[in-house]
Deep mutational scan, measured.
Amino acid sequence: DHWHVHIDGERIRLDGASEEFIRTLEELIRRGTDARELKEIIKEYLR
């Protein structure tokens, strides 16, 4: 599956992301997590 998110107007691909990770991201977004912080979390995950 190819997922991607838009954060700060930037399109970030989440290739190979699990549904669990996507749900976690959605939860963080709902909580109002800062965009820079979200991008860091995604970069760490994709390593």
Rank of each mutant, 00 (worst) to 15 (best):
D1N: 14
D1W: 03
D1Q: 11
D1T: 11
H2M: 12
W3N: 08
W3E: 05
W3L: 12
W3M: 10
W3P: 11
H4N: 07
V5P: 02
V5K: 03
H6A: 08
H6Q: 10
H6R: 07
I7Q: 02
I7A: 02
I7K: 01
I7V: 06
I7R: 00
I7P: 01
D8G: 07
D8T: 02
D8P: 01
D8M: 05
G9H: 04
G9I: 06
G9D: 07
G9A: 04
G9F: 04
E10L: 04
E10H: 07
E10A: 02
E10D: 09
R11G: 12
R11A: 03
I12W: 10
I12E: 01
I12N: 01
R13D: 15
R13Y: 15
R13E: 15
R13V: 15
R13S: 15
R13C: 13
R13M: 13
R13A: 15
R13Q: 15
R13G: 15
L14M: 06
L14S: 01
L14N: 00
L14P: 00
L14W: 02
D15P: 11
D15K: 08
D15I: 10
D15G: 05
D15A: 06
G16M: 07
G16A: 02
G16R: 07
G16C: 06
G16P: 03
A17H: 04
A17W: 04
A17S: 05
A17I: 07
A17N: 04
S18E: 05
S18H: 09
S18I: 04
E19L: 14
E19Q: 13
E19C: 05
E19I: 13
E19M: 14
E19N: 10
E19V: 13
E19Y: 11
E19G: 09
E20I: 08
E20M: 09
E20F: 08
E20S: 11
E20W: 11
F21W: 05
F21K: 01
I22Q: 06
I22P: 00
I22H: 05
I22V: 10
I22Y: 06
I22K: 10
R23V: 07
R23P: 00
R23C: 05
R23M: 11
T24V: 13
T24Q: 14
T24L: 13
T24M: 11
T24N: 12
L25C: 02
L25S: 00
L25E: 00
L25N: 00
L25M: 06
L25H: 00
E26P: 00
E26V: 10
E26R: 11
E26N: 07
E26K: 12
E27T: 08
E27K: 07
E27P: 00
E27I: 09
E27N: 09
E27R: 07
E27G: 07
L28G: 02
L28S: 04
I29Q: 04
R30C: 06
R30A: 14
R30N: 12
R30T: 10
R30Y: 10
R31S: 12
R31N: 13
R31D: 09
R31T: 10
R31H: 10
R31C: 05
R31Y: 08
R31I: 12
G32R: 00
G32S: 04
G32W: 03
T33L: 10
T33E: 05
T33K: 02
D34Q: 09
D34G: 13
D34L: 07
D34N: 14
D34E: 11
D34I: 05
D34W: 04
D34V: 06
D34P: 14
D34A: 07
A35G: 10
A35V: 09
R36H: 14
R36P: 07
R36W: 14
R36T: 14
R36E: 13
R36F: 13
E37D: 09
E37N: 05
E37H: 12
E37M: 13
E37G: 05
E37P: 01
L38D: 00
K39W: 14
K39C: 01
K39N: 08
K39A: 08
K39F: 12
K39E: 08
K39Q: 09
E40K: 12
E40R: 12
E40N: 11
E40S: 10
E40W: 10
I41P: 00
I41Y: 11
I41G: 01
I41T: 08
I41M: 13
I41C: 03
I41K: 10
I42S: 00
I42G: 00
I42P: 00
K43T: 13
K43F: 13
K43E: 15
K43D: 14
K43R: 11
E44Q: 09
E44G: 06
E44W: 06
E44R: 08
E44M: 08
Y45E: 04
Y45L: 05
Y45A: 06
Y45K: 02
L46S: 04
L46R: 03
L46M: 09
L46N: 06
L46G: 02
L46F: 14
L46K: 06
L46A: 03
L46Y: 14
L46W: 11
R47K: 15
R47N: 14
R47F: 13
R47W: 12
R47C: 11
R47P: 09
